[in-house]
């Protein structure tokens, strides 16, 4: 056999062996990884509504127990009404309710899936039952530059969302945006309740996330309007059950 043929043969065998090993590792561990991803999503839903203490680690069982006790997943249709039964007419939107101590909804949570600079930014935005005030924000997956746009996953950035308003004083929808720099320097006094501090060096991440949040809040505006006008959401007895598999 010539040297070239030997080289090609060796490379082929090596590639097949390596890919077999990788396939084995990937399929064998998939179950564990998916469970972790699901728990992480639940953790972030709870983070968004402020149900977790910041400086404490929670293990998977605690997260799942707390999630099972206080979070309820629903589907809403384009008019903002909760979908009942297992009817599927398309265009349904998933959403979560935070039932503090099992009672009245203390917040509702909408899933965020926004464009970022390098990939999708996925997280949750929680709003208070007045349908206008942000209760919290959390990110569970992104591909932004670590140290710059990647700061969106940090508590200091997410904490700034708490208490911001998605409607102005006249009751019109204005969304919540990310400022270029600190809000107190970059934004006019009367607009400050609708802006959060930006991240220096991450202008694009901020712009894309602002656009993403606006379009998502716009989509969920009928739900928010229900909360604003009626103070709550009517949940039918047989509301549609959510899939439990992770969406990503």
């Amino acid at each position: 056999m010539s040297d070239a043929a030997k080289t090609v043969l060796f490379a082929t065998v090596l590639c097949v062996a390596c890919s077999l090993l990788l396939t084995l590792a990937s399929t064998g561990l998939k179950g564990f990884q998916q469970k972790n991803a699901l728990v992480d999503q639940h953790r972030n839903i709870l983070l968004a509504v402020g149900a977790l203490e910041a400086d404490r680690g929670y293990d998977a069982e605690e997260i799942e127990a707390l999630y099972g006790r206080s979070i309820r997943c629903l589907y809403v249709d384009a008019t903002g009404a909760v979908v009942s039964g297992d009817a599927s007419q398309g265009g349904e939107l998933p959403m979560y309710l935070y039932l503090k101590d099992g009672g009245e909804p203390a917040a509702y949570i909408i899933p965020v899936d926004s464009r970022g600079l390098w990939g999708r930014i996925k997280g949750y935005l929680a709003l208070e039952p007045d349908g206008a005030t942000v209760a919290g924000f959390a990110v569970y997956a992104h591909a932004e530059t670590p140290g710059l746009g990647g700061e969106i996953e940090r508590r200091w950035f997410q904490r700034n969302f708490v208490g911001k308003r998605i409607v102005n004083d006249a009751g019109e929808f204005v969304s919540v945006r990310i400022a270029k720099g600190a809000v107190k320097d970059a934004v006019r006094q009367e607009l400050q309740p609708h802006f959060v501090d930006g991240i220096s060096g991450a202008t694009f991440t901020g712009t894309f996330l602002s656009q993403g949040l606006e379009s998502i809040l716009q989509t969920y505006e009928p739900v928010s309007l229900n909360f604003r006008t009626r103070g709550m959401l009517r949940i039918p007895e047989n509301s549609k059950v959510c899939k439990t598999s992770p969406s990503s």
Binding site: T7, F10, A11, L14, C18, L21, L22, A25, Q33
Partner: peptide, 30 residues
């Protein structure tokens, strides 16, 4: 290992092991 693809072979072996390590961390030390 053929001498002319020595480095490529080494990188392939290392890359495979790194991905396996990463998969294990994602599964057990998330």
């Amino acid at each position: 290992i053929p001498r002319n693809i020595r480095i490529i072979t080494e990188v392939a072996v290392i890359a495979t092991l790194v991905i396996i390590a990463d998969e294990f961390l994602k599964a057990f030390l998330f």
